[in-house]
Write a protein that binds this DNA or RNA. Sequence first.
DNA 1: TCCTAGGGAGAACGATCGGTCTTTCTGCTT
DNA 2: AAGCAGAAAGACCGATCGTTCTCCCTAGGA
Lengths: 205, 205
Amino acid sequence: MSPGFPDTAPTPSPSAPRDRLLATASALFYAEGIHAVGVERLITQASVTRATFYRHFGGKEELVTAYVEAQDAALRAQYEEAAQLIDEPAGLLRALVGGISETVCGPGFRGCPFINAAAEYPDPATPVHRAVLAHRTWFRTVLLELLAAAGHSDPPWAARRLVMIRDGAMVGGYLGERDEVVTSLATVVDEVLGSGRTDMEAGPG
Amino acid sequence: MSPGFPDTAPTPSPSAPRDRLLATASALFYAEGIHAVGVERLITQASVTRATFYRHFGGKEELVTAYVEAQDAALRAQYEEAAQLIDEPAGLLRALVGGISETVCGPGFRGCPFINAAAEYPDPATPVHRAVLAHRTWFRTVLLELLAAAGHSDPPWAARRLVMIRDGAMVGGYLGERDEVVTSLATVVDEVLGSGRTDMEAGPG
DNA sequence: TCCTAGGGAGAACGATCGGTCTTTCTGCTT
DNA sequence: AAGCAGAAAGACCGATCGTTCTCCCTAGGA
């Protein structure tokens, strides 16, 4: 741009085609299912040519994996952001499940992208399936740590319960009544947190 | 049709090809996903010709619908069978969730066929999606009736909780630790049933 | 006896699948 | 000024998609 700043500039377009591709893929894969979306449609909607597609991704499955990993990264970032605003573990825990409620009630919610992806990639050896499991492991670990930090009497037990109720909320929000799911979710979280008799009484604080 | 026993006999082969087709489809669709299985493979493994396939089903989607409806019918039949052996609603309720535990722990469990099918058929107008919702409505209704018959103080609330925990168990049994899921499931059922303070104290009776 | 419905076998349909190729043009680095 | 990486544009590949077709054979009802 000018002398003194020879660096590669603040990436005016870091790799626009790649980003467009991933964004388009995320929207289509999530809304319609992965196997239901072909490469043709992807590159057309992303305004990208075939050659460009295969220059950035080794193939469709690699793009699918990138899609799942991007969802994972987004949730991790969302959590990190919340973690910088909230100090108490119990509050962070509630913020975490609050985010789930918002997701479920948000427009265009179509189920958990990880559960849906796993439904289409049953083989555990698949990178896609592995990415799903990796996200779930991360989520469970975060719950475990927060529960322990909050002084819960039985973090493993509580984490198991919270993971199950999260999955139930995701499925129910897609194939059932969203409002009911959200209220049930909140109630269960209060119960689980309240049952670890320490400094984590229910209530938004 | 004619004197004596002109009837179509006790169906020596009611429609063997059709049954083979549906059985093969059920196994493949469940194990590998629906869009991942083509007609070619279907008819080859079922030892049926293309013409025969299209004589029995209008197309692939009709077979998929039949697959989902067959799963639904099997579960309804399983429930009816249990209902004839068990009188008390509370016991029947426990048998119902006991069946879920067995399913989750059974060999080859690959998640809930209804949840998985819905992941591949997001459009609510699709017969497949509708069949999934129909099954879920039936399940919820059964829970509701059993809870009411058992004298639970808040059947709608309890039914919601049980549906959510069922979904959580199905997902967790596929993408998590099966043993943990089953024990958590049993605990939650006890809690939910026990909270309706009437004649439904926990315990297998 | 005929006759016909149902199944087996397989060719063929257009469409789309995921993937590779060549060519041209632009924009940056050297 | 030269050169090169990345992207646009699009032809092209074999394979498979779901679907329809013809032909033949066999078993069961009229």
